[in-house]
């Protein structure tokens, strides 16, 4: 493919993925409210549109027409930079996540991933580390005590769980022999899912992903009863919406990563042996990816409305005294699997 074709196909893929993500985010918020209502025996949003289905659009419109308040105590440049950074991180990570096999159309072979690069996993890790800055900047620059406490707690939490996250990925790399997400998916053909081969690594990664996305039971940065809104107490209007959007987009990215690394990616087990036409094979693979993703997103919401919040010391104990040794153990476990069973 020439450079121009690469650029055009990439732009088309980027536009499609960003739109799918934005629509998913808005309806994720809607479903979160509906599921929470269902969990608490309420009705949930049901006024705007049929069954409240237009609620997300009403919310966005309302936030768009609100005043953008920057408090006097705030450091204005950094106060503005923080939501920019949060959104930037949330909308760049999807680039390396494969969501289907190569699409063959009009004589072109288009890989269903925006950027098929060798350092895919390092790219993801680098960007998630950058995400810590967004929250720390927001907390520090607001000039409010709630924000500061939320920001500091959050940075401590996120860097603590990043270590077990990194070591858990080590176990995946042992089996895939590559940092390319495509190769990681290919190494999990059939039922050789990493979640089945290395359950410890799967659990440590899942827990770390919850902590990295600041979801309950790890949502200390914005623990409402003690810190009001946490790091985004002093944000209003679209800057607040930016953080909100980034949080839900991160949830989508985290589930996509879990699917790619541990649940076989876009692969439907043994689909290639069914002898389907290639077009159907691609369609079913993409649908499989979306289905796994949807299940994980439901799991994220389900956990949020089922578990209480951790205390700060419990959270740090779990991160350093349980998750860290377990993720090291996982590496030895996977190496042992390779040596004994030659997989």
């Amino acid at each position: 493919m020439s450079i121009w074709e690469t650029i055009i196909f990439s732009l088309i893929k980027i536009l499609i993925i960003v739109h799918v993500m934005l629509i998913t985010v808005s309806y994720l918020v809607y479903f979160e409210r509906k599921i929470s209502a269902w969990a608490q025996n309420r009705l949930g949003p049901n006024r705007v549109g049929w069954k409240g289905l237009l609620q997300p659009f009403a919310d966005v419109l309302k936030l768009l027409l609100k005043e953008d308040i920057v408090p006097n105590q705030a450091n204005k440049p950094i106060h503005t930079l923080a939501p920019l950074l949060a959104l930037f991180v949330a909308f760049t990570t999807y680039a390396v996540i494969p969501f289907g096999p190569d699409l063959k159309i009009f004589g072109y072979t288009i890989p269903l991933v925006v950027a098929d690069i060798n350092v895919g996993i390092l790219y993801v890790l680098a960007l998630t580390s950058l995400g810590v800055y967004a929250i720390t900047f927001a907390g520090w620059s607001s000039g409010s005590k709630y924000s500061l406490l939320g920001g500091i707690r959050s940075s401590a939490q996120m860097i603590s769980y990043e270590i077990s996250m990194g070591f858990s990925i080590g176990g995946v790399l042992l089996l895939s022999q590559s940092l390319r997400p495509e190769a990681i998916v290919a190494s999990q053909s059939g039922w050789m899912w990493n979640a089945i081969l290395q359950p410890i690594g799967f659990i440590t990664f899942l827990v770390s992903a919850f902590a990295e996305t600041n979801r309950l039971p790890f949502d200390l940065p914005e623990a409402e009863p003690e810190l009001v809104g946490g790091f985004h107490t002093e944000y209003s209007s679209m800057k607040f919406a930016g953080f909100f959007l980034a949080e839900y987009a991160n949830m989508i990215i985290a589930s996509a990563l879990i699917v790619t690394l541990y649940l076989g990616g876009w692969q439907f087990p043994y689909l290639e042996t069914f002898g389907l036409p290639y077009g159907w094979y691609v369609a079913i693979s993409v649908l499989t990816f979306l289905f796994k993703e949807a299940l994980l997103l439901f799991f994220f919401i389900w956990v949020r409305w089922s578990l209480p919040r951790f205390r700060y010391d419990q959270l740090m104990n779990l991160g350093w005294k349980v998750m860290f040794p377990l993720s090291l153990l996982n590496i030895v476990w996977v190496a042992g699997l390779i040596m004994i069973f030659k997989i």
Binding site: S10, F91, T92, A95, D116, M238
Partner: peptide, 25 residues
């Protein structure tokens, strides 16, 4: 060449983030 899409994604994300944050102004 593999990295062209990455730069496109980064450029797109900057524009998107800027548009979102500054639209309320």
């Amino acid at each position: 060449e593999q990295y062209i899409p990455v730069f496109l994604v980064i450029g797109f994300a900057i524009i998107f983030a800027g548009a979102t944050v500054f639209s309320s102004e």
